[in-house]
Design a protein around this nucleic acid. Sequence first.
DNA 1: TCGCTCATGTAATGGGTTACATGATTCA
DNA 2: TGAATCATGTAACCCATTACATGAGCGA
Lengths: 189, 189
Amino acid sequence: MLKYALLGFLNYRPMTGYDLELWIKASTGHFWHAKLSQIYTTLKSMEAEALITSHVEAGTSRPDRRVYTITEAGKAELMAWLRAPLIEHEIKKDTLLLKMFFGLPAGKQALLTQLRLQLDLHRQQQRLYEEETPLEMLRFLEDQPEIADHALLWDLARRFGVMYEETYVRWIEESIRVLEQTLSDDSQK
Amino acid sequence: MLKYALLGFLNYRPMTGYDLELWIKASTGHFWHAKLSQIYTTLKSMEAEALITSHVEAGTSRPDRRVYTITEAGKAELMAWLRAPLIEHEIKKDTLLLKMFFGLPAGKQALLTQLRLQLDLHRQQQRLYEEETPLEMLRFLEDQPEIADHALLWDLARRFGVMYEETYVRWIEESIRVLEQTLSDDSQK
DNA sequence: TCGCTCATGTAATGGGTTACATGATTCA
DNA sequence: TGAATCATGTAACCCATTACATGAGCGA
């Protein structure tokens, strides 16, 4: 699946694996990310499939760069994927929920500690999407004015991030209240 | 990680791989699930780690059942995991967001079709968590009254499912409105 | 001089899915 | 008679993470 994210970016303009990681971090990071090692191996297999081609640009003071360009076959594959209807409901695994679900034997205080820690993290993340992500997106769009018409869609995705974190924060706050009021302190066992 | 879900259930009472799948479907399904094949291989490796033991019960009219029981080491491992603070913010990959993000070349109509299809699915899922999941949980608790005190935590997790789907539905509705009002119909390219 | 950025890769391992294989009983 | 439930497993594969490996230039 990372394949399609890479095709999507290379459809904007040719770039290197390293560039792709920077773009991913700044834009799709909150709903799709990858390590550099995976990006490099995926690009290699995509080239073998002829979805992209590459050439090496010799660096003068910087290291050599392998620049990837999308092919017609790659564009066709991207388009087919974009149009293929997504007919399943995706389930997202969540470790915090798993710990809460089975958490009774750990005791009330342990559960509250987990919740408070995650509350902080999710609040931070929400602020990030609201304050920093738009600025980062702007910086990328300034450098690449040819993709300004994509900004609307970029922002819809960002908006999801904000709403998701709001909901997560609300759920944790509610859960803390419920636990404080109902679980006995010695629920440990 | 499935390991901890299995330990969590086996901490209620001994059961088979097949049983575990039924429990997962009825309770943690919306935030943690697994195929039978993975459950069987994971149980096997957990037994090798001495976190659980197993014995075969000969079936009379039914197939033989391999029943797994949690060991003291297993209980200790579960407890340590429950108490280990979760210090990262988990990012959930989302295919719909990825398609939206890169979707401009597919055209306005294709995007709206994707959104409407997913809107249906998420509304259905929301109804499921609100109406059917509580009933299923009740059925399990009736059979296992000894775990009734876990019901509160089960319900917190279920509640997250409801809130998540509400938010997803709201985001799709907003996105449909934005796309209808702002994207030109011939945005295809 | 120490850490960061730029830049590319390979190898090993882990977690999970798909496909394959089997077979009796029960219910509609 | 055909589908669903009960019941267990193996093998191949895919996607992703972690660890390993290298190295120049730049700014504090």
